[in-house]
Simulated scan of single mutants.
Amino acid sequence: MPRIDIYTTPTCGYCTRAKKLLKAKRAAFTEIDVSVSPHLRRKMAGRAGGSNSVPQIFIGGTHVGGCSELMALDRSGVLDVMLASS
């Protein structure tokens, strides 16, 4: 399974939904809480092409986007393919 990074904040409902979907897929992920450090938020924005909202999700080094994009990938079946690749 590819490495998954998800940048979040504790009070973000979209973050919770995205993590719930990844857990349902049994996908291990690294959660990075950007609320604890401005440096982490800047790093997230740099990786995400300037996007400053959470969540920002990366699968295998590919920037997926946020919760809506993750859900769309799941509906189309592409998320399963991404998770199956190494």
Rank of each mutant, 00 (worst) to 15 (best):
G77N: 10
A18D: 05
N52H: 12
K20A: 15
Q56E: 14
T62G: 00
S76V: 04
G46C: 02
V34M: 02
G61S: 07
L70R: 04
G13M: 10
S68M: 13
V54W: 03
T16F: 10
H63W: 02
P10G: 13
G77E: 11
M82E: 11
S68Y: 12
L40W: 01
A27M: 03
A48W: 01
F58C: 08
E31C: 05
S35E: 14
I57F: 00
F29Q: 11
S86A: 14
M71L: 14
V64D: 08
T30F: 00
R17S: 10
E69L: 01
I57N: 05
N52C: 01
M44R: 03
A45S: 15
P2M: 09
P38V: 06
P2T: 10
S76H: 10
S51A: 15
M1S: 12
F29R: 09
N52V: 14
L73E: 11
A72I: 03
K23F: 03
S76C: 02
S68Q: 15
A27R: 09
D5G: 00
V64K: 02
F29I: 11
R3F: 00
G50M: 05
I59E: 03
M1Q: 07
G49P: 04
F58N: 12
R47H: 06
S51T: 13
P10F: 08
R47S: 09
L40T: 06
R42S: 14
P2S: 08
R41Y: 00
A18N: 07
V54T: 11
L40N: 05
D80Y: 10
T9G: 05
L79H: 05
P38L: 08
R41M: 12
S35M: 13
D74P: 04
D5N: 11
K25F: 02
L21N: 09
A84I: 05
H63M: 10
V81D: 14
S51H: 12
K20S: 13
P2Y: 04
G61F: 07
S68K: 14
G46M: 10
I6H: 02
I57R: 01
C67T: 06
E69K: 13
C15T: 04
G49E: 07
A45E: 14
N52S: 15
A28Y: 00
